[in-house]
Computed example of a mutant assay.
Amino acid sequence: MTSTAARTAQKTAQIVSEPSCKDAGKAARAAELQAANINPRTGLATDYLNHFNEAIMLLEMIPDMPDCAEDFLGWQPLSYREHFAASNFKARELAISAYESADPAIRAEFDGITSAMTSILTAVGAAMRQARQDKTRATLAGQATGWVKPLVTLAGGIINGNGSEADVDYIMTH
């Protein structure tokens, strides 16, 4: 091999083996998201589910402590953006930015599930305001937790990229 050909081959090997600035930027962004407990594959954070888990916890207390119904009735629905804007989450701006730049299909699936949870909790709250007996409120609370808990699990799966295209995309790019 001539010295020119050898240098060209060496230079080509060097270019192929060095990560590009784009790859380095993606890796830095992924590390930043991971450090903030935001899934770099989906751009979503499980912290948002605490908003729904709080409502579930209050609902679960109603059968044994009927006065907790008033606490549940004080729960207010919040969108992903609203939750993080109002939270003490260290990386709240990053969480909102990552959500906004998340894959639209993943975000739409996630938003559909969280919208369903919000609708259920809001409807149950309205029904509890109409209910006059503790037993009726307890029944409503039990039904609501039975409907919302599996949805929280589904939403968590989306956040973590379980079984989604995010897994495939992540594997194919790493």
Rank of each mutant, 00 (worst) to 15 (best):
S3L: 08
S3P: 02
T4N: 07
R7E: 11
T12D: 13
I15W: 05
I15S: 06
A28W: 05
R29V: 04
R29F: 05
A31N: 05
A31L: 05
E32G: 01
I38G: 05
P40R: 03
T42Q: 10
T42L: 08
A45M: 14
T46N: 02
A55H: 08
I56C: 04
L58N: 04
E60C: 07
M65V: 14
M65S: 14
A69E: 04
E70R: 12
L73Q: 11
G74V: 00
S87H: 05
S87A: 04
S87Y: 04
A91D: 13
R92E: 08
E93N: 12
A95K: 05
A98G: 00
Y99K: 13
Y99E: 10
E100W: 09
E100C: 12
D103S: 07
D103H: 11
I106K: 01
I106G: 01
F110V: 03
T114D: 14
T118G: 09
A123C: 10
V124C: 07
R132L: 14
K135Y: 01
R137V: 00
Q143N: 11
L151K: 08
V152I: 15
T153F: 08
G156N: 10
G157P: 07
N160T: 08
N162P: 01
S164G: 11
S164A: 00
I171E: 14
T173H: 03
T173K: 07
